[in-house]
Amino acid sequence: MELTKNITLGIYLPGETFVHRLDPRTKIIASVILIVLLLFIRSYEAYGIFLIFTAAVIFISGIPPGFALCGLKPMLPVLVLMWIFQLFLYRTPGSDVIFSWWIFSATDTGLHMGNLITLRVLFLFTVTTILTLTTSMVSLTDGLENLLKPLRKIGLPSQELVMTMVIALRFVLILAEELDKIVKAQMARGVAFDRGNFLQKTKKIFPVFLPLFINAFKRAEELIIAMESRSYTGGKGRTKMKTLHLGRVDLAAGLLIFLFSALIVFIIVSIQPQI
């Protein structure tokens, strides 16, 4: 069990492209806009334009196209299953049966719905992947902290939440290493993790996680003491070393996203069939 090697949280591909140089806030907002648009798209025409757009972004950002899609592999069975469910179960009055077998029958609206939902999930995934591939975790959290700041006024402890994320990011690897150590220590004392049926294997997991949790709590306590003695008293009164700047690239990207959204909205409103 080499856990630490397999953990690639937010695989980031460093680069100097147009997309990389954007302020993280611009990228986060743009992604949110794209995601919202996706939730309203119900026509193949709009998806076609969306495909051209994302393909262009992937090309500009220099991400190998295969790389952007390889993360999809584990999701494939779920996508296929979703498509099948929609195909056989979704129907509206007046839809035509295009195929039937035993007690199942597929309708044309079901086929349409299945396609739309599968495409939607595919594009949602691609948009978020582009974001995390071109933005490091640290600048993502910086951007998020900045964007969430106004929500402080309505009582959301945004800075503390982001601080928790920052710490979690750091400790994921440490805890993975620790898990690895505990597993090896137990293997050395004769526990065979790969033997036995499902139930037996599951039982062996508990003695692994118990020490992990206890250690995690101990670490948390030490970390709190260390943070406290470094004058941390919560987000209030804190400043940041790095300040974010919106530049010309962000203006260009903003305009681009605006035009694109206008186009998509136009299609949604005028061409798209209302279901």
Binding site: M137, V138, M163, V166, I167, L169, R170, I174, R219, E222, L223, A226, M227, R230, S231, Y232, T233, G237, R238, T239, K240, M241, K242
Partner: peptide, 21 residues
């Protein structure tokens, strides 16, 4: 390990001064 906060060295060193505002 239990006193470093950030995943980048210089950001971690900035943590204290940031707390001082």
């Amino acid at each position: 390990d239990n006193q470093l906060v950030s995943s980048i060295v210089e950001e971690d060193i900035a943590f204290g001064p940031e707390n001082l505002g």
